[in-house]
Amino acid sequence: MRLLADLFLLAGALLCLLAAVGLLRMPDVYNRIQAATKASTLGSVFILVGVGLLEPGWWAKLVAIIGFILFTSPVGSSTLARAFHRAGVAVWQKGQS
């Protein structure tokens, strides 16, 4: 069980790292929101599952936290993208720097 927990923790950490790299590498705010939201949400869920495998008594709390993350992360990113769109932030076009 420890090996499986460690694999979940490692996968979650790598996905969170990928989200951070996505924030740095993507050309515009819309792509950055998408990269950060998808990777960090899945990374956080993997980390919490890994913790749940290490501490079985925490499952009820961890499931509630996972549900909260799965509900609020897409809603938050959608709200941010809509706010940027309403503010007139342009979408990146090929050839722009």
Rank of each mutant, 00 (worst) to 15 (best):
L3W: 15
D6M: 10
A11C: 13
A11L: 14
A11N: 06
A13P: 08
A13H: 07
L14M: 06
C16F: 02
C16T: 04
L17N: 02
G22W: 02
L24G: 10
R25W: 00
R25I: 08
R25T: 12
M26P: 01
M26L: 08
M26Y: 09
V29L: 13
V29Y: 12
Y30S: 05
Y30R: 00
N31M: 13
R32V: 08
I33L: 10
I33E: 05
Q34H: 15
Q34M: 10
T37W: 03
K38T: 10
L42A: 11
V45K: 02
V45N: 03
V45S: 05
L48M: 12
L48V: 09
V49P: 08
G50A: 04
V51Q: 09
V51H: 02
G52P: 03
L53F: 06
E55P: 10
E55C: 12
P56F: 02
G57F: 08
W58A: 13
W58D: 10
W59L: 11
A60E: 14
A60P: 12
A60S: 13
K61H: 14
K61F: 15
K61R: 15
V63T: 15
A64L: 15
G67A: 11
P74M: 01
S77Q: 05
T79M: 15
L80Y: 15
A81S: 06
A83H: 11
A83E: 11
R86E: 12
R86Q: 13
A87C: 14
V89R: 02
V89K: 00
A90M: 00
Q93I: 10
Q93Y: 10
K94I: 01
K94C: 04
S97K: 11
S97A: 08
